[in-house]
Amino acid sequence: MRLRILETAHDLLNRDGRDAVTTRAVTSALHIQAPTIYRIFGDKQGLLDQVALHGFSAHLATWTGWTPGADPVESMRQGWAMHVEWGLRHPQVYSIAYGDPRVGSSSPAADAIDAILRTQVEQAAADGVLAVPVEVAVSMVRAAGVGVVFTLLAMPSDARDLSLSERIRESIFAAVFTDRSPGADRGGAAMQLKRELEGATALSPNERALLGDWLDRLVQ
């Protein structure tokens, strides 16, 4: 029943927009009672959140994140392109995932995408090519990517300049990443060391936290 509700709500969303996803519309289509929806999803927002996650499932299934031996920065370029393409193809789902900010939390769909992004960024840190702290990098890439999608969605489909996405991506990546050359700035080395601190046993938790704070300040 849960899957049937999600698929019905997803169809309503794509066909008629967010306002069409009502408890009455879903229950009428499935010939069920409203308490069934409340029992499974809690409330309408809970249903919408799960519809967005359901809508992202096909996208997530094709993007598993970094694999051993892969270049994390190049993988992020591919992930960025997939993310923007998905948002433009599914604006209603994307708007539920990212268009309703909530202080202290986000939608399950956005959380799932962020988890993949964080994996990529952490690997970049481990490889010594991250120039800023992990959380800063995740926030910068996320903000830029979401901004690109909503900016393009606001344009007439036949007038969208898709090169905007690539230009913004490369600008953000230039600020977030460094290179592995001997002359690379100290940020990459600092973030690589911070990443290695997680498994260090020679230092106490307080010492690791203090050293991590110092390393963050080096790249600010």
Rank of each mutant, 00 (worst) to 15 (best):
L3S: 14
H90Q: 14
A70S: 13
G69K: 04
P205G: 07
D100S: 13
D19L: 13
D19T: 11
A126I: 00
R160V: 00
L48K: 00
M76G: 09
A115I: 04
D213K: 14
T64D: 14
A159W: 09
G147T: 01
V219N: 09
Y94A: 07
E170L: 13
L47N: 03
A70E: 14
A200T: 10
L203Q: 10
R195W: 09
T23A: 15
S28K: 14
M140D: 14
E198C: 10
L215R: 02
A131L: 07
D43L: 07
L153P: 02
D127M: 10
A125F: 04
A109T: 05
D100F: 13
W80G: 00
D16Y: 08
L13H: 03
A61V: 03
A175V: 09
S139C: 05
V21E: 01
G55D: 01
V121M: 09
A61T: 07
W86M: 13
E166A: 13
E166G: 06
D19M: 11
S165L: 06
A34F: 02
S95T: 14
P133K: 04
S163F: 10
L193C: 12
Q45M: 11
V21I: 06
A9L: 08
R142N: 07
A58T: 13
H59D: 13
S28R: 14
V146H: 02
V141E: 09
G147R: 06
Y94K: 02
V73N: 05
S95Y: 09
A144N: 04
A25R: 05
P35E: 11
I32T: 05
D100R: 14
R24A: 13
G104L: 03
D114C: 11
A97L: 08
H83C: 10
A184G: 00
D11S: 15
A144W: 03
D127R: 07
R18L: 15
A112Q: 09
Y38V: 04
G69M: 06
K44V: 08
M155E: 13
H31Q: 14
T151K: 11
D71H: 10
F56I: 04
D11C: 12
L53W: 03
M1L: 12
I32P: 00
E7L: 09
R169V: 03
R39Y: 07
A112T: 00
A131S: 10
L211F: 01
M76V: 00
I40A: 09
Q45I: 10
V51P: 01
K44R: 15
D111N: 14
